[in-house]
């Protein structure tokens, strides 16, 4: 048979809905852009420097690890860039270059590649990195100390720190509008509340993140802060303040929703989100740290495999037939 045609064969299905990881990564970066641009606008070239360095070194670490582990280069999927970008968003504009370099190393190598690369990381890589930085170089993430040389024309005090050390009297210094528009000191990409909310809603509508996690996280923060506030409004700030400050919004839409370290079943997602929100406020109000988001989400990351065992019964399971 000379003119035998060769057909491609494989197992069904023969259609795909054309979704892909790179599509998702680019969309996450797009959604993060408003908040990042606001940060760069506020803090100028140093902020741009941190973002650029973080994204690029994250990709370089990824490439190096691809080489070391003898796997095909995976920076095309955009995941390393997303991690780099998120990490930069959590850092103050004044972060020195070496910290960014170490930060992306911790995120990509320790947070992701050591566990086997994408999909195998039990914890959110950006949070692993930020947690280690937080514990090792405390001053770097003390936003008041870090941003001491900036005067952007608004109240240059990190709200959560002010709250922790000065009490609820400081709350009145920040209007909701200021908080939404990022008119306070903080990390590069975490202060522009409105931008983060718009980005988050975009990702939710496009089905790129799981809305159950974001919403339950925000609800967890709100309810917990509400009860603390009722119990002692002198000592504890109200729910809105907690929702709009610190890493709450970036946590809800960009960090807690990381695929690999969060559950996929409905009830576990709700528990995961709500508990992370609860722990966030708990740490802020009675814990040792100014912001609890990082450790709250990491703790729930650890609980994730256990939580995700709560799932509906599969078809035909658990039925008795006589």
């Amino acid at each position: 048979m000379t003119n035998q045609k060769l057909f491609v064969s494989s197992h069904a299905p023969y259609w795909h809905n054309k979704s892909s990881l790179s599509m998702k990564s680019y969309n996450i970066m797009l959604a993060a852009l408003p908040a990042v641009i606001m940060g760069i606008y506020q803090y100028g070239p140093p902020a741009l420097g941190v973002v650029a360095l973080s994204v690029s070194t994250a990709m370089i670490w990824e490439l190096i690890m691809n080489y070391v582990t003898k796997r095909p280069a995976s920076i095309g999927d955009g995941n390393a860039a997303v991690i780099g970008l998120l990490l930069a968003m959590l850092l103050p504009a004044s972060t020195p270059w070496w910290t960014v370099l170490i930060g992306t190393f911790l995120a990509i190598v320790v947070g992701k590649q050591i566990f086997g690369g994408i999909g195998c990381n039990p914890l959110n890589p950006a949070l692993v990195s930020i947690a280690i930085i937080l514990l090792s170089w405390k001053g770097l993430l003390d936003f008041d100390e870090a941003l001491v040389n900036y005067d952007l024309g608004f109240y240059m005090v990190y709200p959560l720190a002010a709250l922790k050390y000065l009490g609820t009297s400081v709350v009145s210094n920040y209007s909701v509008g200021d908080l939404l528009m990022g008119q306070y000191a903080g990390a590069i990409g975490s202060t522009f509340g409105l931008g983060l909310i718009i980005g988050g809603i975009y990702l939710i509508l496009r089905g790129m993140i799981r809305w159950e996690i974001s919403i339950s996280f925000l609800a967890g923060v709100f309810v917990t802060a509400f009860f603390f506030n009722i119990a002692d409004s002198e000592k504890y700030a109200g729910p809105l303040f907690h929702l709009l400050t610190g890493y709450t919004l970036i946590g809800a839409f960009f960090l807690a929703t990381e695929d690999s370290s969060s559950p996929v079943n409905f009830i576990p997602m709700l528990i995961y989100g709500a508990c992370a929100g609860f722990l966030t406020v708990l740490i802020r109000n009675i814990g040792a740290f100014v912001d609890g988001t990082v450790f709250a989400i990491l703790m729930m990351n650890i609980a994730n495999p256990l939580l995700d065992k709560i799932r509906p019964k599969a078809l035909g399971k658990g039925i008795k037939h006589a």
Binding site: S19, L21, S74, G116, I118, G119, D259, V264, A314, G316
Partner: peptide, 17 residues
């Protein structure tokens, strides 16, 4: 590539697997 745990499959599965 390995699974990234995005959960799309879980949501779509009619047999709740």
């Amino acid at each position: 590539d390995p699974c990234i745990n995005c959960g799309e499959c879980v949501r779509v599965c009619p047999a709740k697997i």
